[in-house]
Design a protein around this nucleic acid. Structure first.
Lengths: 194, 194
DNA sequence: GTCTATAAAGCGATAGAC
DNA sequence: GTCTATCGCTTTATAGAC
């Protein structure tokens, strides 16, 4: 019971850490910031994460990966109806990234120099996303080569939409861009399953 | 003459600073790193950039903006032949970002917390890029609303392609994704100018 | 298990010799 | 104009009180 409790507390600190890393980046998020974000003292943080910031970031990335797998990837991989799965993905992604107001931490880490330490997590995240979307499109009778292209373009477009909507300072850009990707995906499955 | 000389030396330090900021980010690039990258001591750096790191980054962003305006934006705005201008943009962009091996510093800064201080530069960069591409497409008789969508999608796709090719660790992804965007743009101008 | 105090190192920035 | 030395301050990380 007491073992479970410490794990639970560690796990409950992860979302706060994630938000701090999102806002300040890996190097920018100091222990003082992380301490304030979680409400835990530095001592407690090192008790949960003996490896320091790196272990915290690793736990955050693992948590994000788990959430995406359960919420986005898994439904795409075994879709009852491909069109519904696509619509669901777009809806969840838009809510998760708050229309571009919230940064994709995995993408951000991949761009930075700190990315090397988390390269495999970053790679897996994007590879699994694309793979899941490919499976969904193929379930909608889209030819494999076209499914691969569409999946890559969609995942790219989402990352780009976050950058662009933040840069332009207009949240509406995100929905506009993502909406067009949704339409392209739905059009593809509708055309081929016809 | 001596005035010109100091300006030249300051300017010649900017590309090295840019590369250091690209590799380490704004917070990650310490003065020790910037000193090593430029070959100048901290004293010399502060002589050229009294405002410290912020002024260095601002000079870097101004330099990048100037290069993009001359090389990419201006040719798009007054295209002799839209298709040629588009092909040239893709070629220059691919070389500049080294097929995704080189990060887009403007996009990276826009994602990070340090972006606030450089928000107007980041915004202008993307707004001008999209605007220039829209003008080029309209010169190719693409309807305005469609030109705006295509331009947004292309700029997004380039940013996303950098993230994805780095994350997946395959440089080929960049050319593949950007090539499809190029084809879409060329197809649009060919179809409407027909 | 959580805190405060503290260590050692690195940070941005400045001063002053040359 | 360029360097070295140095100032405060913040950083990560640890130690020890409770």
């Amino acid at each position: 019971m007491n073992v479970k409790r410490t794990l639970t507390d560690r796990a409950s600190a992860v979302p706060a850490l994630a938000e701090a890393f999102r806002e300040h980046g890996f190097e920018g998020a100091s222990l003082a910031i992380l301490s304030q974000a979680t409400g835990l003292g530095k001592g407690s943080l090192y008790n949960f994460f003996p490896g320091g910031k790196e272990e915290m970031m690793d736990a955050v990335l693992a948590d994000i990966d788990g959430w995406f797998y359960a919420t986005i990837f898994a439904p795409l991989e075994q879709p009852r109806d491909p069109a519904t799965a696509i619509r669901s993905m777009i809806e969840e992604v838009t809510a998760y990234f708050r229309s571009g107001g919230r940064v994709c931490l995995v993408g951000l880490i991949g761009l930075g120099s700190s990315g090397g330490a988390f390269a495999s997590r970053v790679k897996d995240y994007f590879a699994r996303w694309i793979s899941a979307l490919v499976h969904c499109l193929e379930a909608g009778d889209v030819p494999p080569s076209q499914a691969q292209s569409l999946a890559e373009e969609t995942v790219c477009g989402i990352q780009g939409a976050i950058i662009l909507s933040r840069a332009l300072g207009e949240e509406t850009a995100f929905g506009r861009i993502i909406g067009r990707h949704e339409a392209v995906l739905l059009n593809a499955v509708a055309r081929h399953s016809r």
